[in-house]
Design a protein around this nucleic acid. Sequence first.
RNA 1: GCCGCAGUAGCUCAGUGGUAGAGCAACGCAUUCGUAAUGCGUGGGCCGGGGGUUCAAAUCCCUCCUGCGGCACCA
Length: 643
Amino acid sequence: MAHGITLTFPDGAARAFPAGSTGADVAASISPGLAKAALAIALDGEVRDLSRPIERGCTVRLITRKDAEALELIRHDAAHVMAQAVQDLYPGTQVTIGPAVEDGFYYDFARETPFSTDDFAAIEARMREIVAAAEPFVREVWDRDDAIAHFESIGEHYKAEIIRDLPEGEEVSVYRQGDWLDLCRGPHLPTTAHVGTAFKLMKVAGAYWRGDHRNAMLTRIYGTSWRDEKELKSHLHRLEEAEKRDHRKLGTQMDLFHFQEEAPGQVFWHPKGWTIYTTLMDYMRRKIRASGYVEINTPQMLDARFWRASGHWDKYRENMFVLPPEGEDVPPVALKPMSCPGGAQVYKSALRSYRDLPLRMAEFGHVVRREPSGARHGLMRVQAFTQDDAHIFCTDAQLEDEVVAMCDLIAQVYRDLGLAEGLRVNFSTRPEQRIGSDADWDRAEGALRKVLDRIGLPWDLNPGDGAFYAPKLDFILTDAIGRAWQCGTVQVDMNMPTRLDLAYVGEDGARHRPHLVHRAIMGSMERFMGVLLEHYAGNLPLWLAPVQAVVATITSDANAYAGEVLEALQQVGIRAEADTRNEKINYKVREHSLAKVPVLLVVGGREAEGRSVAIRRLGGKAQEVMPLNTALQTMEAECAPPF
RNA sequence: GCCGCAGUAGCUCAGUGGUAGAGCAACGCAUUCGUAAUGCGUGGGCCGGGGGUUCAAAUCCCUCCUGCGGCACCA
């Protein structure tokens, strides 16, 4: 044991091993059971193949199927198995990259005819054969040039390119599974059998080589894989459940809105959907008035000259709807894609004094943006929408407090709406393509950083992702299937004031530039509605529900009383309907439950006689009979908005 | 915009070359019922648009539009 190594185990125990011992040796030294169960070994936290010799003393942890890292190994290896299956079945297909991702894996292939889901059955069948063969994953380190020559010779030009681009000095490792091999950094499971059979190919998609649209489009196959069938099944079940809360589905079921071919990416709001929309907007108006905002509104269409001046004609033209002139001499007009240039005109309509600042101007700006056809997505990405926008004009000294105040306002609104949990903030800093001086960027980013400390929300740094004119804080909410959507945003802008020549007269009598902070809380009202609907799976809080209560009769004998109850509810401002149809109470309960009406007030002979109602709440079985007046008070209290 | 898939009754969907279907909804009639579907009956279609192949097209081919899942974009 002259050249042994000392390994430290998670329990703190340190043991000596002969030099050249592998992870498998370590596992075997502990117990035969572990030797069998071990999949990989973590050396100082870095996951390595079990078969690789351990070069140095370190802390070790054996990874078994239970560990979090196991899933990633299983998924990564499933990608390899799929790649082999594909190349076995479709010779001439090139492999590129195939990582493990959340819930599964994918592999990008280069092939003249893209795959279709019809190919899945064959690929999955071949994958099962490869898994059954239990081929060991064997790691080899190759000479760089040999590797390039090899991959070129077998027509794997993408792999050769990957090797060429590897940093100098990085090992070129190749893994074999049977007679198939792939360039790969590893680590891998001991054999293909360890992948198991709890996998399923999910979808095909196009994906650009290296994520760049100027490159060739590859065909990507997504799969999901798990430790066992039970996990797979529950994953598929989760997907089904998520589908049920898709806002597009709920929109139809709850009769909130629809889309149609003649107005791509634009919403036809139905009475119930529009009720939610205006209720949200009313809430927001109360909120911003209480926070010292004024509200303005600016034109929908502006002469092209204006957009040339603002810079949009250059920078944003592709996303704008431009109306061609009718006559030769008429200049084109464009529908506004953003509210800020218009809002700035209101600022400029008067000579502003330092006494006017901070000036907080809100605008529910209806903007229209041309979106790429593949980008549209229900309410989440539309071509015409209303932003709950605001522009705050302030002095340098006011900047930080203003930004903190608006972040607090955003957080308050999200809390009021039940969306605060899981809220993420992205701090996006200066991009490469930017205008303005580094000193200004330092100041603006510094201010946002201080703000982040003060507001105490979890945040991620998103370097280089700021707008070309300002760093920003983006407030990210997620939809039913975990897709992230930006809703709120705060942007500290040091450029527009100069471009649009904004000024205020200071205490010293001289003209100064104000700072301009752009902010939206819900962002797009449409998108926010989509997120809300999915978050609540359609079961909106009482104050937002389009129909808050339905008075349902048991027999027609109670119709007159139901009318009285309805009127009483409406008198106290509750959105209520009466269901006096000649249907059984079971039918009515079912129908209104499916329509997600939060409160059912059932009235029959007994209630009519005693001037009471039987309250049944959505999702509950229990009924509570109470006097009508009590019910009215309860309802009125419960339907009150959070602000 | 790119790759794959889809578009049939208000909704959900079946129908793969030979007379357009089902369930729910709607409408009518009967039923007056106590907390998630009462029964019977009736009406309802440019099978996304255009072009082509064929004796014959919802069905096969081309093309456009819209949507869905990704990618890219956006933020």
